[in-house]
Design a protein around this nucleic acid. Structure first.
Lengths: 247, 247
DNA sequence: CGGAAATTTGAGACGAATCAATAGCTGTGG
DNA sequence: CCACAGCTATTGATTCGTCTCAAATTTCCG
């Protein structure tokens, strides 16, 4: 049946991502299966979490793209990080946590409650590594904004997204769907959409990438990484964001 | 005895900071006292943690300033965040954690092992809130670099540091020692030292601040905060970075 | 097919970088 | 106690990257 097949497809990237962080056992898979029965769709542009408000339960992103964002009083906007299927939203151990940023859907988004996990369990380890990766990506964002020029920022972010989309199976080879406008990209990269546009065109001219109709192809990702001095993010000596290759 | 008095002074800002995050019980104070007997001094510019290397045990910063920093292959440098007394360094729950950034002393620094804490214990709550604040300050750094201009970045960072130094008792009123060169500030703010210098002079002319001989005075911090649209960081509905008032 | 959103293009202005030189401090040793 | 070395701060002149404003043009979607 189409419906069942769709649900399986929906879960697949999130499951693949979590499994790439730590080998999931039956208990973890079972908990995830039960949680995903309570999945809800949330429309693009809706807020999943509101800055300053108390956070309810952590959510697992199953499908679609979301972002953490901060709005300045005068209307300026800064995207802090992107959230992809397999990412956990609003996981804070302190009592009565307050959201330090708004989280908004960039596309329609499917989320379910993130199953609780004992520290040390398979799922607990996956969450811990996922959290560490989240933080590492935010630090990468700081460096991007502080010390890279416009061309480098774009290349660096696309390489990061590619790396993450490979990990959850949403990219094959060096192509992936990028459901972001140039304006959104600009607000993530601390630039204007006009300048993003010009730099993307330059990247096309220099044969660094193709981008058409929401689909990006990086021509020679390792070469681009070398060109802008980027190295892949790793947070644990046991596994990484890439699917673990044999022990 | 001078020696004993010095040790007490050394501990005071770190203890005050932790106590401002969660009320510390006897067990917590005792654990901290025992840990601080193993304190070590580390000279300025030494690395406390090295990017890419495995992290040993978490450390508690007792005295001095440190920073997380990332160096690009071509020599560009980006400070990611500053670490002040009371901050915990290298607290990562995942197995075999790798450091995602180098941590370096900006001054001579006194550190001790961070006592282990059960989740839910007084110290555990303080750590959890401290971690959440750390993350919030990194997000603030993203916004600073992405969407504030040079003048706003300087004011915003100084207000943040003031807020944090008040919390651990290292600032009284609106003055505090700032053991940073303009070049260090530039590498934190994504600017050049020349431009930082010009903007600091402008801030002096506009009576936003005084800065002489390593000591900064913010004239009218609330006014400055209003001027650049900054609000204090809060991560929990129960306590904040400020000493909790009543209940 | 029509309208809104997104992308693209151009001209000009402005903020911050760069390069280079000078002045001020701080600590060190003679 | 002074002279010198080596940072740190300051200043000036110029260049460069990115923004701003405005107007096409193309794409998307109902």
């Amino acid at each position: 049946m189409i419906r069942a097949a769709t649900i399986v497809d929906d879960r697949q990237p999130a499951l693949q991502r979590l499994a790439s962080l730590a080998p999931l056992d039956v208990a973890a898979l079972d908990a995830l299966a039960r949680a995903s029965n309570q999945a809800q769709t949330i429309r693009a542009r809706r807020e999943l979490v509101s800055e300053g408000r108390e956070i309810a339960e952590p959510l697992l992103l199953l499908r679609g793209w979301a972002a953490r964002v901060r709005l300045l009083p005068d209307g300026r906007r800064q995207f802090l990080s992107f959230l992809l299927p397999g990412d956990v939203i609003g996981h804070c151990p302190q009592p009565r946590p307050l959201a330090v940023a708004t989280i908004v859907g960039l596309t329609d988004v499917l989320v379910c409650p993130a199953p609780a996990a004992e520290p040390g369990s398979a799922l607990g380890v996956a969450y811990a590594i996922g959290d560490a990766l989240d933080q590492a990506y935010v630090l990468a964002q700081v460096t991007r904004l502080g010390r890279l020029n416009a061309q480098e920022r774009i290349g660096d972010l696309l390489l990061e997204l590619h790396e993450r989309l490979i990990a959850n199976g949403m990219a094959r080879g060096s192509s992936f769907d990028l459901p972001l406008t140039q304006e959104t990209l600009a607000d993530a990269l601390g630039l204007t959409s006009v300048h993003v546009n010009r730099m993307v065109q330059q990247a096309r001219r220099e044969n660094d990438l193709q981008w058409k109709g929401g689909r990006v192809t990086l021509l020679d990702p390792p070469g681009l990484a070398r060109k802008i001095g980027r190295t892949a993010v790793r947070v644990s000596a046991t596994v990484g964001p890439q699917p673990a290759r044999g022990r």
